[in-house]
Write a protein that binds this DNA or RNA. Structure first.
Lengths: 222, 222
DNA sequence: TCCCGAGTTAAGGAACCCTTAAGGTCCCAA
DNA sequence: TTGGGACCTTAAGGGTTCCTTAACTCGGGA
């Protein structure tokens, strides 16, 4: 996990000040002063983005939209004290928090930390793990090739593993979470579900690894 | 167009004060002090909802979610000055604005007016989902071939699904929203309505998908 | 090699959903 | 007031999908 933070801020003085604040807090700021410069950057290279909505060139709002399309990185927006409508639009477009100018450095840092700590305020609509994509709203999962027709249990298992992608999740945890606890009988049931899930995953089945003696893990790459 | 405003506020003093403010501004406030009391109300009977997120009984957030499921009425949330995360969650769940406590009465009124003025982001008069078009004003639905003669319940179901097009909507949510909750009897009732709706949809019936174990979903394309 | 955890398959039964048909209610017009 | 129509609900049967179990196979680790 990187500690780099992308700072998009056209104001010279404010940008320098924020950069310094971020550095002192142990982050590694990357400061760009122009929306067009920020546009081609990959937001996933950063642990968070701090974005001033009042920008020349590409408008801040467009940048936000763009980043949201391709990534789930936390985005904080800087807004003028009284520009409520910008805050609202920003948040609805997926920003994670806002800081009102002028602000104390500690406040910004605290907000960033809060964003990094809290996984997300609202259940995110979609999650991608490698070539597997899950759309919670549609309640649908797909690989690069096709939409998967999963049963409720299979879908739940996939979601659980995806939410904790890269972590080994114990068999008990999965059984607890997605299977009817009453059927404490055969623990083998999970095997069956996993087996079928793998088959349906097709090419992507390699991402669903067995952690011997523990449980399973869904990896980003196979 | 009604000028009634639903105010959900448990605090006695604040509730009375806001009610009065609304009255003086020419609105007709309906003040309820409890989330559970507000729950069964139909938000479409009001021109706006003012909602305190800190509520006993049903949590304000749940109320907001519920209202958003069934209606597009503007919702303003009242929040404590420093509870940013509530504001953010509220806005992401579809609130249209927030007012921070304590506030000046004029501010609240101004915000309400702004919400009412602001043309909705979506064209609320009509919605199209794939080949299905719904005209709320005419209260009419049609496919590419023909105008559908739907019963009230069928129309409501279609509207609910169309408003959340692409999302899986649970059976309970649909029953809650469009069927008389008192008739908790047979859950099969919804099946019947869906069945008849599908038949009437004709060619477009493929867009109305069953999400097994969850509910239904209206897709853009079949 | 042996043991035990994990994978696979098939089959029975449970859960869920769709459809048809039969009341029941409400409203309107005769 | 009464008859009829439109609509909603309920009931019942049947179909589909899904979960579990059981039995067997596979494979890693001692």
């Amino acid at each position: 996990m990187t500690n780099r933070i992308l700072l998009v801020e056209d104001d010279e003085a404010l940008g320098r000040q924020v950069s310094e604040t971020l550095s002192q807090a142990g982050f590694e700021p990357h400061w760009v002063q122009d929306g067009d410069e920020a546009r081609p950057l990959n937001p996933d290279d950063y642990c968070a983005v701090v974005l001033d909505l009042m920008l020349p060139g590409t408008y801040g709002m467009d940048l936000l939209k763009r980043y949201r399309r391709v990534s789930e990185v936390p985005v904080l927006i800087l807004s003028a004290r009284d520009d409520t409508s910008d805050k609202i639009r920003g948040l609805k477009l997926g920003a994670d928090d806002y800081v009102t100018k002028p602000f104390f450095p500690e406040e910004l840092i605290a907000r960033i930390h809060a964003c990094l700590r809290r996984p997300n305020l609202v259940d995110t609509k979609r999650v991608a793990v490698g070539s597997v994509q899950i759309d919670f709203e549609r309640r649908e999962a797909r690989t690069e090739e096709e939409v998967l027709t999963l049963t409720p249990v299979e879908f739940e298992i996939l979601v659980l593993l995806a939410r904790r992608k890269g972590s080994a999740v114990s068999r008990d945890a999965i059984v607890d979470a997605v299977l009817d606890a009453a059927h404490e009988g055969s623990r083998r049931t999970l095997d069956v579900h996993i087996s079928r899930l793998r088959r349906k995953l097709g090419m992507a089945s390699g991402q669903l690894e067995t952690v011997w003696g523990i449980g399973y893990r869904l990896n980003d790459a196979s």
